[in-house]
Amino acid sequence: MSQPPLKPEELTVPVPGGDLAVLRWPADQPGAPTVVAVHGITANGLAWYEIARRLAGRVTLLAPDLRGRGASRSVAGPYGLARHADDVAALVAALGAGPVTVVGHSMGAWVTALTAVRYPELVRRVLLVDGALSFPLPEGVREEDALAAVLGPALARLSMTFPDRAAYREFWQRHPAFDGSWSDGIDAYTQRDLVGAEPELRSSCVLEAVQTDGAQVLLDREAAGAVHRLPCPAELLWAERGLLDEPQGLYDHQRIELSGLDGDRVPAALVPDTNHYSILWGEAGADQIVRRLLADVSAAG
């Protein structure tokens, strides 16, 4: 069902290399808590549109476009997960919002965990959504091959051009993860990614940023270890299926065990009937995320 457009405020926060673009959905009541939401590797702040809609003003939601993406594409490198964590911390400090809950999806979950480890005074709780866990590669699988498998579809999109906005919309509507679930929010999110002029529109994502960040998701020891050193309460939600809606998701019970996650410190919960994207956009996943964020708000109150 189509929903009324939900337009956030657009802010900028100075960071080394430029001004970071931040989307802000304000709370309805003064003094409401703040949640910072961190998107995935080729996404942008409007990835959190559906979460913002369901939160319905009960918190202030801040969602940056990470450097090298969206309206932050001109923020200079160097890139990397620690740099993104520094940017998230700068955002919280600049807006005087801390300590906050931070929620991250996919690569954003690694950034979220790193932010909590590097800036414990600014983060009081984290929610990790289908990300943040690294686990040993299967025997015989090279790191380079695993990286190519993870980044391949994303890198292919970054090399493409589109004659108009309708063509980009049609490209995403054919994506297996969005099959039958198109919405105004997904449309706004995907359209935010476009830069350039017709007939050569392209993704806003900077190739170097995606390559650097993707390599660190798989290979960086600090990033891999962050989830095991969290100084605050945390929880992981994981999707049943993968990026292309394939049966094997990023995680399963065996992979979570192999990661060495301490389930007492960071409980991990499967969200059934979700894929890597629909855990944010579909009813089942979005409801779980919002329920946990609001439970945290109630506990804080």
Rank of each mutant, 00 (worst) to 15 (best):
M1W: 10
M1Y: 06
S2E: 15
P5F: 07
K7Q: 07
P8V: 05
P8Y: 11
E9T: 04
E9N: 03
P14Q: 10
V22A: 12
D28T: 13
Q29A: 15
P33V: 08
P33A: 13
H39Q: 07
A43K: 06
N44P: 02
Y49C: 07
E50N: 05
G57F: 03
L62S: 04
L66D: 00
L66P: 03
R67H: 15
S72G: 09
R73L: 12
P78D: 08
L81W: 09
L81H: 07
A82I: 14
R83G: 06
R83A: 14
L91I: 06
A94C: 04
A97E: 15
A97C: 12
G98N: 10
G98S: 08
V100F: 11
V103K: 02
V103G: 02
G104V: 00
G108R: 00
W110N: 12
W110P: 01
V111I: 15
T112M: 02
T115Q: 09
T115W: 10
R118A: 14
P120M: 13
P120F: 07
L122W: 01
L122G: 03
A132N: 01
L133A: 10
P138M: 12
D145N: 05
L147S: 09
A148D: 15
A148H: 11
V150I: 14
G152Y: 04
G152N: 04
A154P: 00
L155C: 04
R157Y: 03
F162G: 01
F162M: 05
Y168D: 11
E170Y: 01
R174D: 13
S181I: 11
D184T: 15
D187P: 00
D187R: 13
Y189A: 05
D193K: 12
L194E: 07
V195C: 10
G196M: 11
E200F: 13
L201V: 03
S204R: 04
E208K: 11
Q211W: 00
L219G: 13
R221N: 08
G225A: 12
P231F: 10
C232K: 12
P233V: 02
A234I: 06
A239W: 04
E240Q: 15
D245R: 10
Q254Y: 10
R255I: 01
S259G: 08
G260E: 09
D264C: 07
D264E: 13
P267A: 11
T274F: 05
H276P: 04
Y277D: 00
L280T: 03
L280Y: 04
W281A: 05
E283Y: 00
D287C: 03
Q288T: 07
I289M: 12
I289V: 15
R291Y: 12
L293V: 05
D296A: 15
V297L: 11
